[in-house]
Simulated assay, not measured.
Amino acid sequence: MENINSKVSFIVPIFNVASYLEAALDSLIYQTYDNFEVIMVDDGSTDISGFIAKSFSATDSRFKYYRTENKGQSHARNIGLTKATGKFIAFFDPDDSLEKNFLEKLVLQMNENIMIVSYLFPSAKLGKCNRKITVDDFFSKMFSGTIGTVVWNKLFRKEILKNVKFPEGQVHEEINFYRQLLSVVHDYQILIINDNKEYNYRVDRPGNTTSTFDPKQIIGAKDAQKLVGDLRKSGKKKSIPVVQLNTLIFLKIYLQRSIDNDYKEDAKNMFNSLYLETDKLKCFLIDPFMTVSVVKFKLGLEK
C-alpha cells in the first residue's frame, strides 16, 4: 500500500506528568508500526518530566525533546505541528498509553483519498464494520460521543493541518480546531475504524481537563455555538441538533457545578439563547433521556 512506509509524527504535550510519562512513552516504542517520530514538547514542567523525556531522546533517535515556557497544552501542540516532519499527524496525551497495534491499524486505512482516520471513543459501542462517512456524520459522531471531539484517537493527513492551529489560553480547544477543518475536509475523506480498545485513556488524573472544573471551559461552548453557524452555512443539517444538545448538556452541567464566577451569567444567557433556537423534537429523537433532563433544567431556571 502507498502509505505502508510513511512517517507518522506523534505530538506529545508534556506538563508535570512524571508519574505516568515513562509508561506512556514506552507504549510508543512498542508499536508494531515503527516509522514514526515523537515530538515531545515540555510545557515548562517543574517536576522530573523533562528528565524522563530527555532520557528517551538520548536512547532513541525517533524521540525529539523541546522545552518551552508554560503556556498550556494548545501552545505545546502548535509547537509540535511546526516541528513535525511526518506525512501523518497523531496526538498523544502523556498520561495515557497505546496498545501495540494502535498506529498500524490507522496507517493501513489511510489511503490516498482519506484525510482523517478515527477509532471509536473508548466508551462507545462497537458498530458493524469500518466505514467512510460524510463530514456531517463526522461532526454528529464526534458530538454524540461515538468518536468524541478529542484528537488523540485519530490520525490526520498533515497537509490538511497546514493552516490549522489550536487556540491558545483556553480549555476544550479541540472544538475550534475542528471548526478550522470544516472547510478543508470533504465527504467520504474520513474513515471510522470499528475498534475502541487501542487507546487507553486515563480519566482520573488530578489536573487533567476531564477531572478538573475550570470556569474558562465556557469558551468551548462559545466555540460550539459558532460551529453550529458554520454547519448551517455549509448545509450540514444532520449534525446541528447533535451539537446543540451536547452544548446544552455541557452548559447545564457547567451551571450546576459553578458557584459564582465571572462566566456564570454568561453561561446562563448562552443556555437560554441556545435552548430557544434548538429543535427539541430532533434532540429527543437523538437522546430522549438527555433532552428531558435539559428541559427539566430549563424549567428549574424559570422558577
Rank of each mutant, 00 (worst) to 15 (best):
G127E: 06
K128E: 09
C129Q: 15
N130A: 11
K132R: 15
V135R: 10
F138R: 14
F139E: 01
S140R: 13
S140I: 07
M142P: 02
M142A: 04
M142Q: 15
S144Y: 06
T146K: 15
I147E: 06
I147L: 04
G148F: 04
V151L: 11
K154C: 04
K154Q: 07
K154R: 10
L155K: 05
F156T: 09
F156L: 05
R157Y: 10
K158P: 07
K158V: 08
I160N: 12
L161D: 01
V164N: 08
K165N: 12
E168V: 15
E168P: 08
V171R: 15
V171L: 14
H172V: 08
H172R: 15
H172L: 12
I175D: 02
I175W: 02
Y178P: 01
Y178R: 02
R179M: 13
L181A: 02
V184C: 08
V185H: 04
V185G: 05
D187T: 12
Y188T: 03
Y188H: 14
Y188I: 00
Y188N: 14
Q189V: 02
I190R: 05
I190E: 09
I193S: 12
N194R: 06
D195N: 15
D195I: 11
E198C: 11
Y199F: 11
N200C: 08
R202F: 01
R202C: 09
V203Y: 15
V203P: 00
D204I: 00
D204R: 04
R205G: 01
P206K: 12
P206R: 13
T209E: 08
T210I: 13
S211P: 00
S211G: 05
S211D: 01
T212W: 00
F213Y: 10
D214R: 15
K216E: 14
Q217I: 06
Q217T: 09
I218A: 05
I218W: 07
I219N: 10
A221F: 02
A221C: 11
A221S: 14
A224G: 04
Q225F: 04
K226V: 02
L227R: 01
L227P: 01
G229T: 06
D230R: 02
D230N: 12
L231I: 01
R232W: 08
R232Q: 13
R232M: 12
G235F: 08
K238F: 07
S239I: 02
I240W: 06
N246R: 07
N246L: 01
T247R: 04
L248C: 08
K252I: 07
Y254S: 08
Q256M: 12
R257D: 12
I259A: 15
D260G: 05
D260P: 00
N261T: 08
D262P: 01
D262M: 03
Y263D: 03
